[in-house]
Nucleic acid binder design. Structure first.
Lengths: 153, 153
DNA sequence: CCGTATCCATTCCGATACTG
DNA sequence: CAGTATCGGAATGGATACGG
């Protein structure tokens, strides 16, 4: 009870998002889920993480509605973890993490994975921010303001 | 020596990005930096975090080239921490975190901060992924592929 | 195969005290 | 103010062993 900045009443959406998926393992699990990983053992083998930590992360992400449990697609008696629509909406963030890493964290000729369009085989263009007229928007062109939404859809 | 997936040679850009800013505090520091926070004491007061943790995060982010030290703008003898161009490129990611939180983590009428265009006062449109022809791109329209860049700019 | 439980080492974090 | 040092509690993470 020392203080209350971390309570659910936090009004900054960035902070609230980080309360849901603020750590490295959770992001990697979501990344793998986008790549089609669904089974406990696949996550564990692919990420090389401890089984108890994986279990607790899967439980938390499920409770938060990012993942959901589905019956095994191969007829086995086990479960699978798949992204919900809410979880799929994290795609732009994961792609943003990927593109920033590609641009700033690899040497010129260094091998890395990248995202390509399935249909055409062409690389996915970089995400960028635009205003309502389609003009590129830089950080200094924006400000953060507190609002109380009234009648949004 | 159990395995080697976490070494710097990691070929997934998402994982490498998370090695640089994989934790909650670092993201909140970067968020504050975008909001114009520059001084040690401002970060500390605004985030309510322990001073030693703040110091270590600022040091790490500076070593990684996300922040850089600048002389105080008010003539005092102290330093300020400002985003480098590399750090500013995190803008789309931070905005992505914000927009996901706004959409999924707040009740309909609940008060929260949001991003608006400084010039027009209008809200910044949602980030989205498009292919090279401007068509919206969903997760299942893409695949991750390993490449060795040859002669990219 | 899943997933849980337990043990142990390491890190994280907050509070406080201390130095330019 | 800005930053460092230290201390104790809590959470994290890895390895292993154990039951559906």
């Amino acid at each position: 009870m020392s203080q209350q900045e971390n309570m659910p009443g936090e009004t900054c959406p960035v902070a609230r998002t980080l309360d849901v998926i603020g750590d490295r393992w959770s992001w990697l699990i979501v990344r793998d889920a986008f790549d089609g990983i669904r089974r406990f053992g696949e996550f564990q083998k692919n990420l090389g993480m401890a089984r108890n930590i994986l279990a607790s992360r899967l439980r938390a992400l499920t409770e938060q509605g990012v993942l959901e449990i589905a019956p095994a697609s191969d007829g086995s008696a086990y479960q699978e973890y798949v992204l919900t629509p809410k979880g799929e909406d994290l795609f732009t963030v994961v792609v943003g993490l990927r593109q920033w890493g590609e641009q700033h964290l690899f040497a010129r000729r260094e091998k890395h994975s990248t995202l390509i369009e399935r249909a055409s085989g062409k690389p996915v263009p970089r995400i960028s921010l635009h205003d309502q007229d389609g003009q590129a928007l830089r950080p200094q062109d924006t400000i953060v303001k507190k609002v109380t939404p009234q009648n949004r859809s």
